[in-house]
Structure formats: C-alpha cells, structure tokens
Amino acid sequence: MYSEQISHEEVNVLSPEPITLMPFSLALSRHGLKLNRAKTHTLQVNVGCLCNQTCRHCHLSAGPGRKENMELGIIHEVVSYARRSRFETVDITGGAPEMNPGIGALIEGVFPLAARIMLRSNLSVLNDGKRGQLLEMLKSYRVVIVASFPSLNEFQFDSQRGDGIFQISIAAFKKLNAMGYGHDGSGLELNLVSNPTGAFLPPSQAETERRFRQILKKKWGIVFNNLFNFANVPLGRFRQWLVKSGNFTAYMEKLSFSFNSCAVEGLMCRSLVSVAWDGYLYDCDFNLAGGLFMGGRKIHISEMPGPPEPDSHIATADHCYTCTAGAGFT
C-alpha cells in the first residue's frame, strides 16, 4: 500500500516471529459482542501521508518522501459527500494535513455543512513560516485544532518526533495561544493528544491532563482545553520499530490482555467513516493504514448516497486491540 522505499534491513523485520494471539473477532464473540455501526456522525478525511516529520509512532509511516496527497478533484467529491450526508463533525487528518495544497478549499467547502471541523496537527508545521493564511482561516472558521504532543520530556519527545521538534512545537503552541486558541471562552478550541514514547500503554488520562496543564502553564505559560491519552497502534512505522526492537510480541500480548469489553460500545469506528486521499472509504484511519476497506468492501466516496447504514459490518483485525485496551480509544 505504501509507495515509499523500504530498505532491505526493514524488509527483514516486517515479519516477526509468530505469536499466540486470540483473533480480535473471537475476543468479541467470547464476550457476546458484535462490532457494528451505530449512527455515523463524523467524516474523517485523510488528505495524504505527506508530512514534515518521520515520527517513530506513526501508523501510516508518513513523512517528507510520501507522494500520496488528496487532489482537488477528490476534495470536491468529499465536499459533495458531506453535503448529501450532513455529518455533525468533519475530522481532517494526514500526514500533516496543513501541507496539502487543497486544505483551504476543503475547510471552506465543509464549513457550512458541519457544526464542528477538526484539524489534526503535529504543531511544528504550523510554525514553518508558510502557514499565516491558513492560521487566519482556522481562526476565522473556528476550526478545532487537535495537536499531537507526546511528552513533556524534551529528550523523549525528540526521540519520537525528531531532533529539535520539541522547541519548535512549544513555539507553535505559544503562537496559537496568542491567537486565542486554548483560552476558555474564546471559542477557539485547542486539544492535545499524548502518546507513549515506547512499547507501553498510556497512564491515566485524567492524571496526565493535570500534569500537562500544570507544567505547560508553569514553564511556558501555555494553556489548552482538553488532553486525550491514547495507545500507539502497531501499524506502519511503529510496527517496524516494535519488531526491530524486539518488543512486538510483548506489546501485542499487552494489548490483548488489556481487552476491555466495556470500551467496545464507544469505539470511534461505530460513529465515524474515514475517506483516504484516493477517495476510498474505511471504517477508521487505522483500517486505512492496514488496507481494510469499509465493511470489507472497496467503495469509492462517489458511490455513497449518504452515511453508512446503522448496524452495518465493521472490518476488524488484531490492531483493533489497541482501541479496546484499558480505557479504550474513542
């Protein structure tokens, strides 16, 4: 699925030793559960794998060398689909979605059609000196920024995202705060996503949010609205790192042993449909990375009359254990 070149060294580690793991579908059935859709209220749009970073935890192996980028014709198809489906939320992601030349057209097109528009950002790309017009558009359209900020430790942060990225991200954070983002009552929502920097599950979300809020405010005067703490999905570059480091088997076992049946009802795939840069539909961005089409069928956005039907099938694989481990991934 990926067009980027993989070295011979990487190829040798893409197939780890076999592990004894109960298939995710069987784990569901043993708990008397079925993973089917509820009402779909969110359209997630992955505009491509182009990114200014090569993060170790990226499930899409996004980076500067990736060529997949949603073209303007597909962006128009996305806007048409949003118009006939009337989703409550449009969630724009990548790669670094800010780097797609059509990002402004996408935001402008869906703005009248959804009550909430979200942009997932790695922060550093917003501080590259080229995004002034985009930043003004985000503010004008009240776009919610969901910023990846894995750690308060500069060394851990840079080890996952690249040298110097921590300080660049802090500067971007301050710029967004100066625009009004993250301040209560401003109407400009700035949320953080924190991911572990190794082969382990995240700590308590409430505890992590308190710590981030206190330290970011004290050290840099930075404020934000909410923090979400998620496990890393064993796909793409993160899977390669797990295999190379000898952590793949233990990590998969950790995810499966942490299966929480109570998390299934709130999984994002039950209320979200994801469209890739080429216009094909998936149940979530992780299934997109894994090549699992929506409901197991290859369907283009132009073929869809509206949102997926309630109670329709959701494609699953073992990476789905990530979303049901502990408190879940909702």
Results as ranks from 00 to 15, higher is better:
residue 3 S to E: 14
residue 6 I to F: 14
residue 11 V to M: 12
residue 17 E to D: 15
residue 21 L to H: 04
residue 22 M to I: 15
residue 31 H to T: 00
residue 44 Q to W: 01
residue 48 G to P: 03
residue 50 L to P: 07
residue 50 L to S: 00
residue 51 C to Q: 06
residue 57 H to G: 07
residue 67 K to G: 12
residue 69 N to C: 15
residue 71 E to T: 14
residue 73 G to D: 14
residue 74 I to D: 03
residue 75 I to D: 00
residue 79 V to A: 01
residue 79 V to R: 01
residue 80 S to H: 11
residue 83 R to S: 09
residue 86 R to N: 11
residue 92 I to V: 15
residue 93 T to L: 05
residue 98 E to K: 10
residue 106 L to R: 07
residue 107 I to D: 01
residue 109 G to R: 09
residue 115 A to S: 13
residue 119 L to E: 01
residue 119 L to Q: 04
residue 123 L to V: 02
residue 125 V to L: 05
residue 127 N to Y: 02
residue 133 Q to C: 02
residue 136 E to K: 10
residue 141 Y to C: 05
residue 142 R to E: 06
residue 154 E to I: 05
residue 156 Q to I: 07
residue 157 F to L: 02
residue 158 D to F: 09
residue 161 R to D: 10
residue 166 F to L: 03
residue 167 Q to D: 13
residue 177 N to M: 07
residue 180 G to Q: 04
residue 185 G to I: 01
residue 187 G to N: 03
residue 188 L to P: 01
residue 191 N to P: 00
residue 193 V to Y: 08
residue 194 S to P: 07
residue 194 S to W: 03
residue 195 N to F: 15
residue 200 F to T: 08
residue 202 P to Q: 09
residue 203 P to S: 12
residue 207 E to V: 10
residue 211 R to Q: 13
residue 212 F to H: 11
residue 214 Q to D: 14
residue 216 L to H: 06
residue 219 K to F: 04
residue 221 G to R: 00
residue 224 F to L: 08
residue 232 N to F: 10
residue 234 P to H: 04
residue 238 F to N: 04
residue 246 G to R: 05
residue 251 Y to F: 11
residue 251 Y to V: 01
residue 258 S to C: 03
residue 260 N to H: 04
residue 260 N to Q: 08
residue 270 R to L: 08
residue 272 L to N: 14
residue 277 W to F: 13
residue 279 G to E: 05
residue 286 F to D: 13
residue 287 N to W: 02
residue 291 G to N: 03
residue 294 M to Q: 12
residue 297 R to D: 09
residue 298 K to V: 07
residue 299 I to Q: 09
residue 299 I to G: 02
residue 302 S to E: 12
residue 304 M to T: 01
residue 304 M to Q: 08
residue 306 G to Y: 02
residue 307 P to F: 04
residue 312 S to Y: 00
residue 313 H to R: 15
residue 313 H to N: 11
residue 315 A to R: 13
residue 318 D to E: 13
